[in-house]
Nucleic acid binder design. Structure first.
Lengths: 114, 114
DNA sequence: TCCATATTTCAACGAATATTGAAATGAAGG
DNA sequence: CCTTCATTTCAATATTCGTTGAAATATGGA
């Protein structure tokens, strides 16, 4: 990952509403979530939301697909992981480097998608 | 970690020069690095650098100590790790969640501090 | 075709950010 | 005490950012 990509991704996450959006997408999982549902969940104006989606998409942190009238946004976990890897690269020059806290796998939800 | 703390930390990292500074500090390890040395390494004006240091410090990502005439800045790895944990929290609701790429331990340097 | 729904585009505005230049502060040495 | 070195503080400026409102586009159904 290039430094500019990392900066773009970090900037994309470094904003209240976008962080909320991204975390919502992360929790939504691979199926993604409709723009309207996100707008309602976070109480954001649709045009504002579009602006933030664009940022996330340009940063490679999300993708869209159309489904009927809705636009479904999905988080790109691989990019997220690449970013984390980039941040901790060459940590401490190999000295006393506490390993990265692994993500909590999070208890499974009752409704598991196929 | 609170959301606002995460946003602050991400914003602190979401800037070319600051990301450089932070990564330099990460590589410098627990001993830290003098402001002047960083200014020289990255070719940045000292006042600009102070501005960026402040951001990193307020975000909890760095600390300072005085040593003679120099100010030594050090990365706060724990906060860094907390941030990473926050980002991947509740990942995918437990479904198909690729584990976080662990930081490469990075080959040891010849000069190992005690 | 006409209408409602879902989302995007565009222009505008205030707020925040990064950089600069000049001056100030603090520490070490003669 | 005076000078030099290392860094910080302050004020000014151009740029970028987030939000809003109005209008446009695309889809699906009567």
């Amino acid at each position: 990952m290039e430094k500019t990509d990392a900066v773009t991704a970090l900037a994309a996450l470094a904003q209240d509403n976008r962080l909320d959006v991204f975390r919502l997408l992360v929790q939504a999982g691979p199926d993604g979530m409709a723009a309207g549902a996100i707008a309602e969940a976070l109480d954001l104006a649709p045009n504002t939301l579009t602006f933030h989606f664009d940022r996330l998409r340009m940063a490679g942190l999300a993708t869209v697909r159309r489904e009927g009238r809705s636009m479904i946004y999905t988080a790109r976990f691989e990019i997220m992981n690449t970013l984390v890897g980039f941040l901790t690269e060459n940590c401490c020059g190999g000295v006393s480097c506490a390993p990265v806290t692994p993500s909590k796998p999070a208890r499974k939800r009752s409704k598991v998608p196929a």
